[in-house]
Design a protein around this nucleic acid. Sequence first.
RNA 1: UGGGGAAUAGUGUAACGGCAGCACGAAUGACUCUGGAUCAUUUAGUCUAGGUUCGAAUCCUAGUUCCCCAGCCA
Length: 582
Amino acid sequence: MKCSNINSKPPSENNPSPVPPGKESSDFIREIIREDLRTGKYQGRVHTRFPPEPNGYLHIGHAKSICLNFGIARDFGGKCNLRMDDTNPCKEEVEYVESILEDVRWLGFDWEDRMFYASDYFEQIYLWAEELIQKGNAYVCELTADQVRDTRGTLTQPGRESPFRNRPVAENLELFRQMRAGKFPDGSRTLRAKIDMASPNLNLRDPVMYRILHAEHHRTGDAWCIYPMYDFTHGQSDSIERITHSICTLEFENHRPLYDWYIRELGIYAPQQIEFARLNLTYTVMSKRKLLELVKGGYVRGWDDPRMPTISGLRRRGYTPEAIREFCARIGVAKVEGTVEISLLEHCLREDLNKRAPRVMGVLKPLKVVIDNYPEGQVEQMEAVNNPEDAAAGTRQVPFSRVVYIEEDDFREDPPKKYHRLAPGKEVRLRYAYLITCTEVIKDPKTGAVVELHCTYDPATRGGNTPDGRKVKGTIHWVSAAHTLTAEARLYDYLFTKENPDVVEEEGKTFLDNLNPNSLVVSPFLVEPGLAGATAGERYQFERLGYFSVDPDATPERPVFNRSVTLKDTWSKIEKAQGKER
RNA sequence: UGGGGAAUAGUGUAACGGCAGCACGAAUGACUCUGGAUCAUUUAGUCUAGGUUCGAAUCCUAGUUCCCCAGCCA
């Protein structure tokens, strides 16, 4: 039984979630765009872009931005570009570029023929720098990084002007050309914009436009040894691409006056920048720096570790693009900085998978059950429903025999109140099989642990039916001991033990001290034999346990299942509440 | 401390001077061959203080709290 129906749609489909009329999403950015459309500000054009820096893998926060930018283009019949903001050769790598392309595509978005790199514009940006020099708007500064910092002033005090600030244009031009020609060592000179060292906005205190970096760029190689700063690149890149609405996160609000200054002085097309709050999620971290630290420090197995909030991690974990898109739609867009509860993400996955994931059975903590009155050597094929939410998913045969394994948790020698499962003398239903009654409990004489149960079955209840109409509260899952396939389960929990991992109780501790030591538990998994040969990416619901997806580490002999998310567990809540009563 | 932003149930997000709504969470019940799903019900909110107005989450004034900015990172 394959799970192809829940594989993501081909990337060519640029319309991942057609919006039913009346259900169009709305937020303050779309409001602005509607207004711009009404007033004809951009002649009816809507053109956005998603501009990541290829210095790490994309995470769920980027998904929010991707859904926003591509979603707006879709909703308003516009376009959305994909652009790598690759102005810092020291941090950027092709591996990251490739992962970004894969992730955006997997999420279901299509940039068509509009894949760009800021580095494609290096020559134009260089020319613009010369233009500003000509206009007397920029100068070559020989202050060291430390000196620049010292002369920048503080939040309350103005900075001091560089001694090189009033160099003649011709000298600046000559020096800048020598910078490009590689005449100077790294850090010895910068090109600075001549704006206002007393500005209350520190970004306008003669910001650096170009720095010298004798570093190999992932695309331009060694063609350049000077590189433009992000601030001197981003706005112009948007301008070149004729972007109408440059949507970015809140921390760039302070930079907008600088972008506007460059655009104005250069006299080029001006996009409109709109800022929104980035996504924060409980029990995880979202900064690329911290994510990098987790990877480099070996705290996780890689960028695509299923515990990571990266797109590739979520994908490996078993998340669907549909669930992530739905999540992004539900969290909305605003300027308030907040933290979304991870339970909403989990809800979106469950909601999606409930409709589509085939059900199967598997036992994590096996307890042997011998059905004494069931004929030895007999095997019956039980018909099981593949998905009660989807009749078209059909049924399958599951082998049943005299010895089965059930979940350790599904038996209590001394059952608490409201416990509906197996206990001495009690009857439960083995899902799709028979009703059984516990007659004997066998324990390890040394430890006292229950090691085996003996039961009797009611032959009249084949398939789990009760012809006499009697009600049985408990239905539990099982696997036939003689037919079980041993798989591996990877049970994931939150990566951190704290809602906000950055909150540390002692000075000197970091988010790493809040790592959850139990975020991954590997366990043998006894699953029904039909799962042999399960292939990577398939998603299943193991009844009563949760949704799992097949990990790429799986082999035909030994499937590996990642637990994507557990099922909601009402019983554990009841039990917890009972524990508190005592 | 200068500048730039933001404050609506536990969380996220609507309401654009006219009934504070939705989702997640939590709780209760119904139903159930998954203690799943589904259905029903409940819970709980406009940062504070003034003002304008017939009427304020929305407008005005003052205050409070939180976030961002002192990279040759993005």
